[in-house]
Design a binder for these strands. Structure first.
Length: 779
DNA sequence: GAGCACTGC
């Protein structure tokens, strides 16, 4: 919290205190009238009518959305088996499941629909069933349990084309999730409800999960939770998903790129030749939390894909959710100054609305959040003594875990209202408990790829109607709530219905490679719910050709097949393959760099204060290299791996994100394993820790030249005026301040990311020589 | 001199 002294006079300029009965912000007076005095009963709202909140752990939306929340919850859930699958013996394993939890399950809205769901899914001729279930309906945990004992869900011994002996088809239900935490916690929950253990190799387990770096699928598992990406990878090995009787696609409304690809592949399986599955049909269950499933219905139901027999039959089931009512109010006129309007609204709520009831405000990003926090703290110091205190807590993805934890904890002192200032992280990814009031700025920052420029932008844009509804819903999780929209009703009406699906916002390079690796020759004809522009796909095809993933005739090369198997972007896959060639021979070094580059957010934590930044710079001296960011990342990994006393302390000192660094080490292990299998290097390195030897300049040059094989198009030359001009497109780019190359002038640079925010920025920058670009381009 | 959110056999 900012020291009040430092900002006191600034606060006084904007705010004058009149008497204890009102507060004036920016010229507007807010009366304390109607305020619940501290002497009155605190728990006024609790007696209100409305559905009874179900157990927090019985809907996955509440239990699984946040790693942090999960971490907190895990300490308070004695009933759950631990990761190794140790299990409470008192729980039933006779197939009827955990009796104690059965009562909770029966109370879920979806419970009454189980016969209906079974009947529709069983019906011959129905291939696709769409289940619309609002938040809290229990669909994610219950639907697979309703279905796995059905006769059609058995494993079938069948004759498969091109095989002498009989093969097996079906027996398992796959259920996909967009996020790892959701997949793992749902699996834990469902295995507990079923009363069977979770864990690799367990013979008696019914439920399992499979996510990157973590596969816990018991032998004989019938229900398997996985991330969408994992199922896509399985599709590369098993194009007809022969191990599954049904695939449940959950949270399709989020429209991730992976889910759109999955939908396309499923449509092809449904409308294609069943002989590859020995005549056993695949049931597809699509689940959405939003009612707008018209496009989904249309997609699976309409026109057979080219060269196939028929369109699928689609049935839609709608299930009520459990949500308290939320009153929505709008601004009468468009607001001129969003920050100002936000502040007024927050204090208006604070003085007019009863406690308890925290406020959740949705803002654009870190910058706005920090500014709002400062202002709230300034005003808070001038509140009358008989008014409850107010504290502002920021919540955004880049915050440390400890800082995020504050947003989930109740205010420490009594009679204090907490205001959580959040990005759209609080819209779907995490649930902040205790919220009764939502303030919605109506905007969020969106990343959008511009295929023709080969760059992306990150700009604040109006949110969609469904986002606005989702934000408002956050006020009704624990009781009736209120949502204050800082925009007019007309502005709401003018918002687009839903967010642009990721496939229309992202580079489709990886998507096109996935299709090619799955044998889709004509990618323009691949069935997609929303097809990207033809130009975007053509750019991706050209790019893949440049990377060596496609032949001149558009068919995939062996290198392309390998790249598709790597858990990396196509350019990074190309870099890895280049590194394995005799010319460069630096696979292990490139893996070290790539591991750090791809471990989620930046491993280097950004320090705001100037003094802090200087201190960190001092401690990071041993990591930083003048060759640029790639070699700096590489050195960081090597020093971290060489560290044999205290890695956590080592990270703390250098302000390195410990979680991301651990993840980087994980990725390094996975990539080493995969490259070993692909025979990309000949000798397994000795185990860590090994003594550190700085990378020689020659080796550094080789590593950077490997990266040029993937990123030759992302290069810029120094212009006479000192700016950098991109080789491809001739745009002026500035080196991002997060780069070790920031403020330096080199003959030419290569950058791995190109983002437009308030400037055209090159990120992850390395110094190169102009002749290297020609070399990489002219192969 | 600055970063919405996720994710991969």
């Amino acid at each position: 919290m900012a020291a009040p002294n430092a900002t006191e006079h600034a606060a006084k300029r904007r705010k004058t205190r009149q008497d204890s009965g009102s507060i004036t912000i920016g010229g507007k007076t807010i009366s304390f009238a109607g305020y619940l005095a501290p002497s009155q009963p605190k728990k006024q709202i609790e007696a209100s009518s409305g559905p009874k909140p179900i157990l927090p752990s019985s809907t996955h939306e509440q239990q699984s959305n946040s790693t942090l929340k999960q971490a907190i919850d895990q300490t308070t859930k004695p009933g759950l088996p631990d990761k190794k699958g140790t299990y409470n013996k008192s729980q039933s394993t006779n197939g009827t499941g955990n009796q104690a939890l059965l009562k909770t399950r029966r109370e879920l809205p979806i419970w009454q629909h189980q016969d209906e769901i079974r009947t529709v899914v069983k019906r011959i001729g129905t291939d696709v069933i769409v289940i619309v279930g609002e938040t809290g309906s229990g669909k994610s945990t219950q639907v697979p349990q309703f279905l796995y004992q059905e006769p059609w869900c058995k494993r079938h011994k069948v004759k498969l084309p091109g095989r002498q002996e009989d093969g097996y088809v079906g027996g398992m239900i796959a259920i996909t999730q967009p996020r790892r935490v959701a997949a793992t916690t749902l699996a834990h929950r469902v295995s507990t409800e079923a009363g069977t253990p979770l864990g690799k190799g367990r013979p008696d387990g019914l439920v399992g999960y499979s996510v990157r770096f973590d596969h816990q699928v018991p032998r004989g598992a019938r229900i398997k939770f996985l991330t969408e990406g994992t199922l896509l990878q399985e599709l590369l090995r098993d194009p007809y998903l022969k191990q599954y009787s049904a695939v449940v696609i959950d949270e399709i409304h989020e429209r991730s790129l992976d889910v759109d690809l999955l939908a396309g592949f499923l449509k092809q399986i449904l409308s294609g030749d069943k002989t590859e599955r020995g005549g056993i049909p695949l049931k597809v269950i699509i689940m959405s939390a939003t009612a707008e499933v018209g496009v989904i219905q249309e997609f699976f139901g309409s026109g057979a894909t080219p060269g196939t027999e028929k369109a699928s039959n689609v049935e839609v089931l709608r299930i009520k959710g459990r949500q308290f009512p939320v009153t929505i109010s709008y601004e009468p006129r468009p607001v001129a100054d969003l920050q100002d309007a936000l502040l007024k609204k927050i204090f208006k709520i604070h003085v007019e609305e009863p406690l308890p009831g925290d406020i959740l405000a949705f803002l654009n990003g870190q910058e706005d959040i920090e500014a709002a926090q400062r202002l709230i703290e300034e005003y808070a110091t001038t509140l009358a003594s008989n008014v409850p205190k107010i504290i502002a807590v920021p919540l955004y993805g880049q915050l440390s875990i400890e800082a995020q934890r504050l947003a989930f904890q109740p205010a420490r002192s009594p009679m204090t209202r907490k205001v959580v200032l959040a990005t759209n992280i609080a819209e779907t990814s995490v649930t902040v408990p205790g919220v009764r009031y939502v303030v919605d700025s109506g905007k969020s920052k969106v990343k959008q790829y511009r295929p023709r420029l080969g760059m992306e932008s990150l700009l604040a844009k109006p949110i969609s109607k469904s986002s606005a509804v989702q934000r408002a819903g956050r006020a009704g999780r624990e009781g009736p709530g209120k949502c204050f929209r800082l925009y007019t009703e007309e502005a709401f009406d003018a918002m687009q219905g839903s967010d642009l699906p990721e496939i229309l916002r992202n580079d489709v390079l990886g998507a096109v490679l996935t299709m090619k690796a799955r044998g889709i020759h004509d990618v323009l004809a691949f069935p997609l719910i929303d097809a990207p522009e033809t130009a975007a796909i053509e750019m991706a095809l050209l790019h893949l050709h440049f990377l060596g993933a496609l032949n001149d005739d558009g068919t995939i090369t062996p290198a392309g097949e390998t790249m598709a198997r790597f858990p990396l972007s196509a350019p990074l896959g190309a870099v890895l393959l280049a590194a394995s060639g005799p010319e460069f021979d630096c696979v292990l070094e490139v893996i070290d760099a790539i591991s750090c580059l791809t471990s989620g957010d930046d491993i280097f934590i950004h320090v705001q204060s100037e003094e802090g930044a200087e201190e960190v710079e001092e401690h990071r001296k041993d990591l930083q290299r003048r060759e640029g960011d790639i070699i700096t990342y590489l050195t960081t990994m090597q020093l971290y791996a060489a560290e044999n006393s205290d890695r956590i302390e080592w990270c703390k000192k250098r302000k390195i994100n410990i979680r991301n660094m651990k993840q980087a080490l994980n990725i390094r292990r996975q990539l080493r394993g995969m490259c070993w299998k692909e025979k990309l290097f000949s000798e397994m390195p000795p185990p860590d820790p090994q003594p550190f030897t700085p990378l020689s300049p020659d080796k550094a040059e080789a590593v950077i030249k490997c990266f040029l094989r993937g990123f030759a198009m992302r290069t810029a030359m120094l212009a006479p005026d000192g700016s950098f001009v991109t080789v491809n497109g001739k745009h002026v780019v500035a080196i991002h301040p997060s780069s070790v190359m920031h403020g330096q002038k080199k003959e030419a640079i290569m950058f791995l990311e190109h983002v437009y925010t308030n400037k055209n920025y090159a990120k992850k920058v390395s110094a190169i020589q102009a002749t290297w670009i020609a070399e990489a381009l002219g192969r």
